[in-house]
């Protein structure tokens, strides 16, 4: 479903700044290789600032990052050539680490507009307000968010956990094929974590894949990954099965860093 080959990306920087390459770029992703098949769950772990969110945002099409080398193929097409909206319409979903507040725009309005944009792409009839309300009520109950959140401006004044539930609500409504969840489990209380994990498990299907970016083993206890990858300095430096996440939880990143240093 997703094939990332030698992906390099960064931000335009003032020339001569430390870490800047010849083209005036600060490189954040320094050669990512990652292959995810339909039905699989992959987890990415890694220290703060290692490039996890940058990878997620590059996949979703954020234009502050420039891809300088490599390729991303999604369902057989060149993902990087698509606009952010076309990526979403083709079934890619990003749950943001920091969901964005949109003053003055009602949550339900955004939800309905996005569901209908995606339905249109799938050549389905748009849902009218009544049908949409029925659907959204069903899904919002699944993430155990009060219906009053539908009528508030998007993410405005939402607590950290409420924002994450709202991201999962969007995922459940949009029914993507590939969902990238960037620390959707951070800042959640124990009950909320369970709610999110249940939501994620409900989403799983043989034709859908999942990329979980996380700092903790906790979520992975509920959502068992097929592969776990360690991202450091913009590269995947180690991959393994679910046991790798437990090792990291116990020993941190130091052993991997030391092994890398020794290998150099």
């Amino acid at each position: 479903m997703l094939d990332i080959v030698d992906l390099h990306a960064g931000t335009a920087a003032t020339a001569g700044a430390p870490g800047t390459n010849g083209a005036g770029m600060t490189e954040i992703l320094t050669g990512i290789n990652l292959h995810i098949k339909a039905g699989e769950v992959h987890a990415i772990m890694g220290p703060n600032g290692s490039g996890k969110s940058t990878l997620a945002q590059v996949l979703a099409g954020r234009d502050t990052y420039e891809v300088t080398a490599g390729s991303v193929t999604y369902k057989g097409q060149d993902l990087l050539a698509l606009s952010p909206e076309d990526r979403a319409r083709n079934g890619l979903f990003l749950s943001f680490q920091y969901p964005v507040v949109i003053p003055g725009v009602n949550n339900i309005y955004l939800l309905q507009a996005s569901v209908n944009a995606i339905r249109k792409h799938r050549q389905q009839e748009p849902l009218d307000a009544v049908d949409f309300l029925v659907l959204v009520r069903e899904k919002i109950a699944e993430v155990q968010l009060d219906e009053s959140f539908l009528h508030r401006p998007v993410n405005e004044g939402f607590s950290g956990g409420e924002k994450k539930r709202n991201e999962i609500l969007q995922m459940l409504l949009l029914e993507p094929s590939l969902a990238v969840l960037d620390e959707t489990d951070s800042g959640l209380d124990i009950d909320a974590l369970k709610v999110i994990a249940e939501g994620v498990n409900r989403y799983r299907r043989a034709d859908r894949a999942l990329l979980l970016i996380t700092h903790y083993q906790r979520l992975l206890n509920y959502v068992e990954p097929d592969r776990v990858h360690v991202l450091m300095d913009g590269r995947i430096v180690k991959s393994g099965g679910p046991e790798l996440a437990r090792e990291l939880e116990a020993g941190g990143y130091a052993p991997i860093q030391e092994a890398l240093a020794a290998a150099r």
Partner: peptide, 8 residues
Amino acid sequence: FYIRSRGI
């Protein structure tokens, strides 16, 4: 970007 990432 957030809105566009939702297919709009």
